[in-house]
Design a protein around this nucleic acid. Structure first.
Lengths: 224, 224
DNA sequence: CAGGATCCACTATTGGATCCCG
DNA sequence: CGGGATCCAATAGTGGATCCTG
């Protein structure tokens, strides 16, 4: 029982609000997805269930989840005090093709232009099926948020373009960071080094820091 | 060999600059103070040595260290990267007499009006006698720094005045915090509770958070 | 492999406890 | 006890590693 694609933003929001309070177990049953008991076996399952329940356009992966609305869906795990427990994955990095892109053309910019955050109330010791869906929040980055994202993105993408990948660590970036994005630490892919030769490096992605998404959610709640 | 009281700010600063680079062992010998090898046996010894070496007016404890100059002396331990390793003690709190004081009349305000910071380069594994004195920095809180200190002080002193001492923890306060200040956790002193009756509570003091003094020192270095 | 993410060992932080001296 | 502070066990934070599905 997967939902059809919502036709308007209002329809999408109404559906999302209707899911608030349900457990992942209940929602999983609705869309015929089994929810593992142990969290380590269910990474990503909340996101997949919500895609189905809300009618996201599957399998068009360079596009936002809701193509015609231009909206990206992100589930975000909150601790009991309401703060994000984790960073938020934005997109993978093509290490060989960052040189000739600017901010407004970047995947990060486009992915974050409009995001529907669906919180999952996720105390670390609570089994996955018992975790509850929270109230959704639709985000468009403010001017100030854009400025911070852009500053980090420009610094990081310049390093990547210059072949400095091996000097990048998760420490860099105030709100946006670069971290490994792979099945394991042994994964490798090609990237140009500082002299343009090939080097093999671990695949990476952009992530939003928890402190940033916390501030975003707080702002959206206040304006609600 | 204790120095006489310096007569001008310039004289005090000149003396402090002249001490930069010396080890605590060397400086201790000059003022006839033995410096224990183990840091745990020498809490406070750096401060006492520098008081003597710079000619601080001893034993007038409601006053600044340099009475006629209105300057308070604080040694501050830095890690190898130059960041403060510890919070900075400001003053003890008289729990029974905070109700009728305002910020400009407070001990915190007066203690921090003008502070001579003398850094001690203090890698945690370096024996006390081998630690070196750093370059001094004279601080008067900026407008912004005042604002932050005042905001924290007003919130905390109001809690104390209302008898809410037992709800105060070191978590409160962005730049100024309240923490125990006693020989041991069993020390107790009288304080009024929320109904004005007596309660026995652990003695406490105001402290500056390390992040705040780090920002202060950075600002002073840039303007140097 | 790319997209959906979270895990968790390690490091950094810190706040309550403590130490010395006069 | 008040002034000079730092110690250090416990917690918070995080960044590199990992898990599942189609």
């Amino acid at each position: 029982m997967c939902a059809s694609e919502p036709r308007t933003e209002a329809e999408l929001l109404a559906r999302a609000w209707a899911l608030a309070g349900l457990t992942l177990g209940e929602l999983g049953a609705r869309v015929s997805v089994e929810v593992p008991f142990e969290p380590v076996r269910g990474k990503g399952v909340a996101g997949q269930i919500l895609e189905k329940a809300l009618g996201a356009t599957a399998a068009s992966r360079a596009e936002p989840d809701f193509v015609s609305l231009g909206i990206e869906l992100k589930t975000i795990p909150l601790d009991p005090s309401g703060k994000p427990r984790e960073s938020t994955f934005v997109c993978s990095i093509s290490l060989s093709s960052m040189a000739d892109t600017d901010w407004e053309q970047s995947t990060v910019f486009r992915k974050l232009a409009k995001v529907l955050f669906v919180p999952i109330e996720a105390a670390s010791d609570k089994p996955l099926p018992h975790r509850r869906v929270g109230r959704p929040a639709l985000w468009t980055p403010s001017h100030e948020e854009q400025r911070m994202l852009r500053a980090d993105w420009e610094r990081l993408s310049e390093m990547i373009a210059r072949g400095d990948v091996e000097h990048i660590t998760g420490h860099l970036g105030r709100v946006l960071q670069v971290r490994p994005k792979a099945a394991s630490g042994r994964s490798r892919r090609r990237a140009p080094d500082d002299e343009g030769a090939v080097q093999w490096t671990v695949p990476r992605g952009f992530y939003l820091r928890p402190g940033f998404t916390a501030a975003v959610l707080t702002r959206l709640r206040q304006q609600e």
